[in-house]
Design a binder for these strands. Structure first.
Lengths: 153, 153
DNA sequence: GGATGTCGTTGGTGGTCCCAACGGTAGGCG
DNA sequence: CGCCTACCGTTGGGACCACCAACGACATCC
């Protein structure tokens, strides 16, 4: 048998997939707690930002930008609209579309959310030095990348 | 206005919390596809490994080792027991406890799962060089760490 | 003007993580 | 011995994120 029997669970807990799940859960918890003070959650922040970037914009376009499912987008926008942060008006040029636009309150809330999000992310990377944070984020971005870079040569 | 208006969504998508969610989702998808060939999922792998490490062991102890909720542990063990990978017998010494033990099939399956898990993790970190993978995993482990190291001194 | 496809919406699934409560049992202590 | 406290496994929720299928309404391309 040689000795294939180093503790199996410890090996699993050292796997990137396991650590990624743990770190992601921690991040979601931190972000969730932060955004809860505004009564919102992470997707609201992203959608609000996308609307701020792209002026009046259709829901499907928002979905493509943020990567959220159209189904979820409906609920997110319902929340934001009910809170008065976005307006949802029929697009006169294309009656299939809703034109989503940011309100003044929405812009103000977005700034608060951005601040809360930044603070939570600082707490998330609290154990790392600034240089390590930059390095970590750069590597993480490449791991998160869905697309393969194709044949290397 | 000065110009506080760099694209807000791009900033969010560069945040560690966002990247962590994406990378974690990718990892779960890769692991899920790999383990699906055995009809199991990630938690089954971890629990199977914990049982292999700790011989006959109570469910609550498994929960503490793996971090899974007792509620979820019931379902995981039901699956593993139904598949014949573990046995669940009443502990004669403490009638509250179930003694969970690994079967020969369970050990064999654990080896297959370990292999599948390793392959999926290699695919997950496919964009990184070996040195980068080591660096990334080390940093990630510190980010995943729940505990603060207290006052630095 | 008919095929094709997009838009917003509804409905549903699955996985991870977390909490509350319950009957049953063990152990400590008087 | 009897009581209280704590733990065991189990059941029943819930929240959140990710994902898919289908539908009526509408626009567009040929």
């Amino acid at each position: 048998m040689t000795e294939p029997h180093e503790p199996a669970l410890d090996r699993i807990r050292a796997l990137p997939s396991w650590l990624l799940n743990r770190a992601s859960a921690r991040g979601r918890r931190l972000l969730g707690e932060a955004f809860a003070r505004e009564g919102l959650r992470m997707p609201h922040h992203a959608v609000l930002a996308a609307v701020a970037d792209s002026g009046p914009v259709a829901q499907a376009a928002l979905g493509r930008m943020t990567g959220f499912d159209p189904k979820d987008m409906v609920g997110i926008l319902n929340d934001l609209q009910r809170a008065g942060f976005v307006t949802r008006t029929p697009d006169p040029g294309d009656r299939r579309k809703n034109a989503i636009a940011l309100t003044a309150e929405g812009r103000s809330c977005l700034h608060r959310l951005a601040r809360l999000g930044d603070e939570a992310n600082e707490a998330l990377l609290g154990a790392l030095t600034p240089a390590e944070r930059e390095q970590f984020t750069a590597l993480l971005a490449r791991v998160a990348q869905e697309r393969e870079e194709g044949p290397v040569a």
